[in-house]
Write a protein that binds this DNA or RNA. Structure first.
Length: 119
DNA sequence: CGCGTGACTTGTA
DNA sequence: TTACAAGCCACGC
């Protein structure tokens, strides 16, 4: 049993684990999917608390600017994050940003042909 | 229980 | 394009 008292953090972890490989999600995106719309900071907080958790693809979570927030906090971890994403096929541009328009995660994918039309 | 801080976001200048 | 301010909630002291 256990599991009854799902903490806010656990919900965030569940969402992060759902991010497919080769895609990235923003803190706000994760927060919204976790039922915490409007509270993106909690996502960052949860990830910080999960620092060291194995199996958690925390590196797939970046900020809305397509940038790695850890830059000013833990440059070392930021480098690791970037390397992991590049290894999964997520490229960074010269300014160190990811094109969320192409590599941003799209949950509930495929709105029929609406999306397949473009491209 | 109160205050400050923060892996954030959005809006305005 | 960058910089500053306000809103938001959980954790640590």
């Amino acid at each position: 049993m256990a599991m009854a008292g799902r903490s806010t953090f656990d919900r965030i972890y569940a969402v992060v684990r759902r991010i497919p490989k080769g895609r990235v999600a923003t803190y706000g995106q994760v927060a919204a999917l976790a039922g915490l719309a409007g509270r993106p900071r909690l996502t960052g907080y949860a990830l910080h608390a999960a620092s060291g958790q194995g199996g958690l693809p925390w590196h797939r979570v970046i900020n809305a600017q397509g940038r790695i927030s850890l830059m000013g906090l833990d440059p070392t971890a930021a480098t690791t994050q970037r390397l992991r994403l590049e290894a999964e096929g997520v490229p960074f541009d010269a300014r160190g940003r990811v094109d969320l328009g192409r590599f941003g995660w799209r949950p509930r994918t495929v709105p029929a042909r609406a999306a397949s039309k473009g491209r």
